[in-house]
Design a protein around this nucleic acid. Structure first.
Length: 187
DNA sequence: CTTTCGATGATCT
DNA sequence: GATCATCGAAAGG
């Protein structure tokens, strides 16, 4: 399944299929291991109340980025999904660092590989994503994408850091990955 | 180990 | 004026 086919799906379907892809920005990045889906009729989503200046790119073409400022400090990046105009996205929450470790350590200011990309703010900082990348297409430079070499085992859990729809199980992690922002809720 | 809290600014009410 | 798809340091057990 191509990247274009995946991001054309509704975000709760696209999100687990984005796990295992390798995403690089100017050659720096790694394997996507944790994501969350947000939809247009989802009270926890920035798209819930319709298009605004901030979330405009969420209502644009799928396969592009929606990058926003979080808590006035961090940047967080989403992959826009579904059909154009719908307002759906998949938040990139954690990546297993594989390419350009030195560049990521430099940007993050930490040495511990575990802390490089385990969290949405950390992912954006390590990959150098900012407002400049809002609306940018992921199938063109400086981005490169590689599909998973083998099928990925996925676990679904409730999303993190939200105050609405807190039990909707739209956080998806690579089962057993040591690089996620938090261990999945135990059964 | 776990929990609490401050930073910091755009966005929305 | 309140909230916020977070992070990291500090405080508490």
């Amino acid at each position: 399944m191509s990247f274009g086919d995946v991001v054309a799906l509704p975000s709760p379907q696209a999100a687990p299929l984005l796990l295992g892809w390798t995403l690089l920005v100017d050659g720096v990045g790694g394997r996507i291991v944790e994501v969350e889906a947000y939809t247009q009729d989802d009270a926890a989503s920035h798209a819930y109340r319709g298009p605004t200046a901030r979330n405009a790119s969420m209502f644009g073409a799928p396969g592009h980025l929606y990058v926003y400022r979080s808590y006035g400090i961090h940047w967080c990046a989403n992959v826009v999904c579904d059909e154009p105009g719908v307002g759906a996205g998949v938040l990139l929450r954690a990546i297993e660092p594989t390419h350009g470790l030195g560049r990521m350590v430099e940007r993050r200011g930490v040495d511990d590989r575990r802390l490089l990309c385990s969290g949405p703010g950390r992912v954006a900082q390590a990959l150098g994503l900012t407002r400049e990348h809002d609306g940018a297409p992921l199938d063109a430079p400086p981005f490169t994408l590689q599909p998973p070499p083998a099928p990925v085992a996925v676990a679904a859990t409730p999303r993190i850091g939200i105050s609405s729809a807190t039990e909707t199980p739209w956080r998806f992690v690579v089962r057993g990955s040591a690089w996620v922002s938090r261990a999945p809720r135990r059964a």
